[in-house]
Design a protein around this nucleic acid. Sequence first.
DNA 1: TCTGGGGTCCTAGGACCC
DNA 2: TCTGGGGTCCTAGGACCC
Length: 489
Amino acid sequence: MRTVPSIIHLDMDAFFASVEQAAKPSLRGKPVIVGGLGGRGVVSTCSYEARVFGVRSAMATAVARRLCPNGAYLWPRFTAYRACSEQVMAMLRALSPLVEQLSVDEAYVDLAAGPYGPALAAAAPGEGAELVRAICQDLRADIEERTALTASIGAAGSKLMAKIASEQAKPDGLVLVNPGLERTVLGPMAVRALPGVGPATEQVLRRAGLMTVAEVAELSEEELMRLLGKAHGAGVSLMARGLDDRPVVPDRDAKSVSVEDTYEVDLADRDRILHELDILAARCVRRLQATGRSGRTVVIKVRRFDFSTLTRSETLRGPTDDEGVIAATARRLAAQVNLTGGIRLLGVGVSQLADFTQEDLFAQAAAEAALAELDAQEAAEEEEPDAEQEPLPESGAAAGSVAAEPAGVEGGAPAAGAGQLAAQRIWLPGQDVTHRELGPGWVQGSGVGRVTVRFETPDSPPGRVRTFLVDDPELTPSDPLPLRPPPDA
DNA sequence: TCTGGGGTCCTAGGACCC
DNA sequence: TCTGGGGTCCTAGGACCC
């Protein structure tokens, strides 16, 4: 156990909404809701101004609109968020090689493994804590200066307490928990404060009369394991007593890749469903190939009209990144599912990832076979042991069945992107655009053949609104602008 | 008011092997 | 010949997180 609170957890405040407010001066101080804006969309993130109205993450956007009818509702701009995220993560990596990124806006850092490590190790406990405080305040100030965004930080002797502290620090704050005070801090908290305790676990604990962490900490590990199961019970038992020795682990490899779509209207037609699976398989494969990996288990996910969800999976004989194989497997799996009554969501995923493919294995096997052949020729004539000539059903048959399909259906489907948006003249609220004369702005809304654009940039005053025909050739989609001018410029 | 998309980890049963 | 136990893999589902 550490004597200095040298593990920090950093969490960007209302990340997506904050990026939007930084990019769009007219939205500062206003309720901003970022998420899916279709009939089945949900809120990803909302600004603190929106939370006053009761808007929350994961809430149906339709509900949010009723609670907060005058908010700005925007589609997410992931490219812009990723750019900000990378800036922040780079700043964290300057503090330590041990940076564990949990999501686009959240990370642990082990300061003891970085340049401040020796000073922290040499410091008396009180001095060490003050050094951590200074490092964190500098970091928060640097982040705000370089990205125009605020971050909250928790610092403690463990990941558990650092995470709890950052939650307490929000928004735009810093909280340290000195080692030794874990149980004092945790004790009065509701059980839901523990990471990993969600609605189901909370219910179980409440039925056992346990509301606070201190009450849970009084139970024995055995009792908690009986209530919550082996692994979860043991984990909650340790957490409740403030015990956590998990190390900060950088760069963990992904274990699965998946894509899914919820459709505006339930799908009923079988051929349409199979076609959508092909499209999802293609998207999944694109992501897989971008990471240079391949997968052995293919899984499909089906959510029915009544929100009941099921999965079907099949493990192939070897890893693949072949679109035809994955699409054909997905179709085979779909044949096992009752698709009647309407499908609201489809997904395709791949797990058991490897850094090579079945084809690599074939090539390797062929090379080995060739060598063996040479050896065999050199050796005395001998009876060949029966080579196991089992066909490889997944690869062989599946690829064949796809080739037999009407060619080019999925191959001809265009990739959705800025180009397609431009061609179809679909303007999404929040989207970056440029007008040839009026310059950069963003789409405020569109309908009945018109699109409304506000012309402003991160460093301009709030801008004016103009309306155009949706197919106005002067108006084009554009890339996000940096929230702050680059330091050299 | 009606529920996204991307993940991780755990459990449990059955098959299969030793 | 019958019975049992343990380990591993596969599949399906669920809880949880951001």
